[in-house]
Design a protein around this nucleic acid. Structure first.
Lengths: 183, 183
DNA sequence: GTCTATAGGATGATAGAC
DNA sequence: GTCTATCATCCTATAGAC
C-alpha cells in the first residue's frame, strides 16, 4: 500500500511478496476486503497504542490533549497508508466491519473522556464535554493529516509545512473552549 | 467516480457510458491519467466558481472569509468525487500536471488576498497575512470536508454532523487572529 | 472520428490434487 | 496448507480499416 497506494493492494501482490501463490492466501483471508479490514483494525490498534504511550507519562492537564493529538499526527505521518484507510475512503466499496468500527469508536470514547476530565478540572468550559467538541478536534487532526499527506507526503512529522501547525491548531481549539471565554 | 469511487474510473466505463468504444476515447485523451488531470482542473474551476459566486454580493469584511469557506465546503460535499481528487490522493501514481496545479495555486492566492485585506482593514492581526494562516484555514476546510465525506458522506451540507461545525471552526480561526489577542 | 481486432497483461476467486 | 490450473472478467493501449 505504501508503494502503490491503498487502492493498489492486490491478492496477487501480497502473495508474491510473501513468496506464496495467490490462492494460498485464501486459507487466511476469505477475500481481499477481509485483508483491508484486518489492516483497518491494525491501524486503529497502532494509533491507539501510540496515543497511549504518549499519554502514559503525562500528568493530568491540557497537555495530555496536546500530547494525544501530536501522537496521532506523528503516527499517521509515519503510517500514511494505514492512516488513509482510517481517515479517508480510498477503497471503493470497502467499509470496515462492525467489529473494526467498534474498536475505532472505543478510541473516540477515550478521547472524549480526556475532554470530560479537562472540563471537570476546570481547564475547559462545560461545552468542551460534547460530541461536537470532539468532532471539532477530529476535524483539526484530519485536516492536519490530510493536508500534509496530500501536499507534502515526504516531509513527515514534525518538519512538514502543515504538521508543524499542530500546536497552532491546538491553541485555536483550546482557546475556543477556555473557561473565561464564551463558546 | 461518484458510483465506483475515484479509483474506479476506467477508460472502458467512460466509453461505455458515452456510447462509444474504448479506443475512440484516445482521440480525445492520450491516457486515463490525462482524463484525471482534466477532472482535476474541472474541480479547481468548479470550486473557484462556487467561491466567486458566493463572494460576489458580499461587502468587505470577515463575512467574506466565512462565505468563501462555506461555499467551498458546500461545493465539495456536492461534488465529492472531484473533491477527493483535489483534497486527497486517491489515485495511485496520479499527480496533477503543472498547469492544473498552477490553477490550484492561483485560487490559493485569491484566498490569501482575502486574508491580507482583512488585515489591512484591521479586522485580523498582522500574522493572519501569512502562508501559515492560510494553511491553518485550509487545514480546517480539509478537515471539515474529509471527516464529513469519510464518516457521513450522504448527509451533505449543511446538515452533516461535521459540515454544520463550519461556523464553529471559523469562530476558532477568526478568534485566533483577532486583533486584540496575541498570536 | 469511429470502429474491430488484438496485444499483453492484470485481477479476484474457485476446484481439486497433494 | 500449499500448490497448479483455471474461470471469467477486467484493464490500458495500439494498429489499422473505414
Amino acid at each position: 500500500m505504501r508503494q502503490q497506494g491503498v487502492g493498489g493492494l492486490t491478492v496477487s501482490e501480497i502473495a508474491r511478496r510473501m513468496g506464496i501463490r495467490g490462492p494460498s492466501l485464501y486459507k487466511y483471508f476469505p477475500s481481499l476486503h477481509a485483508v483491508y479490514d484486518a489492516l483497518f483494525a491494525r491501524g486503529v490498534r497502532g494509533n491507539a497504542e501510540a496515543v497511549r504511550e504518549a499519554l502514559e507519562p503525562m500528568p493530568p492537564g491540557l497537555d495530555r490533549i496536546r500530547a494525544g493529538v501530536h501522537a496521532t499526527v506523528r503516527w499517521c505521518l509515519g503510517n500514511q497508508a494505514l492512516a488513509q484507510l482510517l481517515y479517508w475512503r480510498p477503497v471503493p466499496a470497502f467499509e470496515p466491519s462492525p467489529e473494526s468500527f467498534a474498536a475505532s469508536a472505543e478510541e473516540m470514547g477515550a478521547a472524549r473522556a480526556e475532554l470530560a476530565d479537562a472540563v471537570r478540572r476546570g481547564e475547559l468550559q462545560e461545552s468542551a464535554d460534547s460530541d461536537d467538541a470532539l468532532r471539532l478536534l477530529t476535524i483539526l487532526m484530519s485536516g492536519l493529516i490530510s493536508q500534509q499527506m496530500a501536499n507534502e507526503p515526504d516531509a513527515g512529522y514534525p518538519a512538514g509545512l502543515f504538521a508543524r501547525l499542530t500546536d497552532d491548531a491546538l491553541d485555536m481549539f483550546l482557546a475556543h473552549y477556555e473557561p473565561t471565554r464564551r463558546s
